[in-house]
């Protein structure tokens, strides 16, 4: 990056380190921290939406929909999340390619040939001619869907619990005023449930943050990928030879995650204080007492 870094073999000490840490590969490493944060920011709202749908499905009056909701929310309790992370992307990928093969390919050629899953080149996703960023983007898209499905199920559990926690008298009063079930949901239940849902959602965010390194298993070039890539020992054939430094790279990632969880906790404490303000709960009462 810097002009003085043109010939790294002549450098010593701090100057060497500075050049080393600003090499092109390292810039990609720093960018991958952005990938992680981007994934978090995209996944969190989608998972919340899935969770909202799941919670409403569990409480639905339509029986098949309720069953679907029950299965969706209870599956994550018994099955490790990493199984979903492995299963969902490859299942989705094959589903998309199968659908595209129906449209673009010669129907006489079977897709499943023994132990192979083959579609014609026109149905490949992404196309083999597509640039590298499309492949990366598609991988991240599949990862986002997998994360959203798993964390949507967790969020559905939390939101359903929060909806059950809203005092029954509130809903009965609304019914007494002649509101329809839909109106009760929209005007009374949903606005009031957030303060009950917040502890669970806070927890969920922490788990989501700590689940992001699993991107590596999905084949995305994330921080774990780059840490292994850059940290591995480099011989003199490389511009910056060094022994096995993977431990230090992983320690840097550890510090990144500690900062993320620590920072999130500070922010959630503030939100909690704001939401408790003026509420008829123990926390709200404590704030009132402290003020006088």
């Amino acid at each position: 990056m810097f002009a003085s870094c043109a010939d790294p073999k002549t450098l010593e000490g701090l100057a060497w380190l500075l050049c080393y840490l600003s090499s092109g590969k390292h810039l990609l490493f720093y960018l991958s921290f952005g990938t992680v944060i981007l994934l978090l920011l995209i996944t969190a709202p989608i998972a919340l939406l899935f969770g909202f749908g799941g919670a409403l499905a569990v409480r639905s009056r339509i029986t098949p929909l309720r069953w679907f909701g029950k299965i969706y929310t209870s599956m994550v309790r018994g099955i490790p999340d990493i199984i979903f992370f492995l299963f969902v992307p490859i299942a989705l990928d094959q589903g998309f390619e199968w659908l595209r093969a129906k449209v673009y390919c010669d129907p006489s050629v079977p897709i499943r040939q023994g132990n192979e899953f083959v579609v014609c080149p026109a149905a490949k996703l992404p196309l083999s001619t597509a640039p590298e960023w499309v492949h990366q983007g598609y991988g991240i898209f599949l990862a986002v869907v997998a994360f959203a499905i798993v964390f949507g199920a967790f969020a559905a559990n939390v939101l359903n619990g929060a909806m059950n926690a809203v005092p029954r008298a509130q809903l009965e009063t609304a019914e007494a005023y002649g509101m329809s079930p839909r109106q009760v949901n929209r005007r009374i239940l949903i606005p009031q449930m957030w303060t009950y849902a917040l502890p669970g959602l806070t927890n969920l965010w922490m788990i989501l943050v700590k689940a992001t390194p699993l991107l590596f298993i999905l084949g995305v070039e994330d921080i774990v990928y780059w840490a292994r890539e850059l940290g591995g020992s480099k011989t003199n054939a490389y511009a910056y030879p060094h022994p096995d430094w993977r431990l230090y790279y992983f320690l840097a990632i550890l510090v990144f995650y500690l900062l993320m969880t620590w920072g999130s906790e500070r922010i959630f404490d503030r939100i909690r204080a704001r939401l408790s303000h003026g509420q008829a709960t123990a926390a709200g009462e404590a704030m009132r007492k402290a003020a006088t």
Partner: peptide, 9 residues
């Protein structure tokens, strides 16, 4: 505060 996955590594 840190992911188990990273702790393993």
């Amino acid at each position: 505060g840190s992911p188990l996955f990273i702790q393993f590594f």
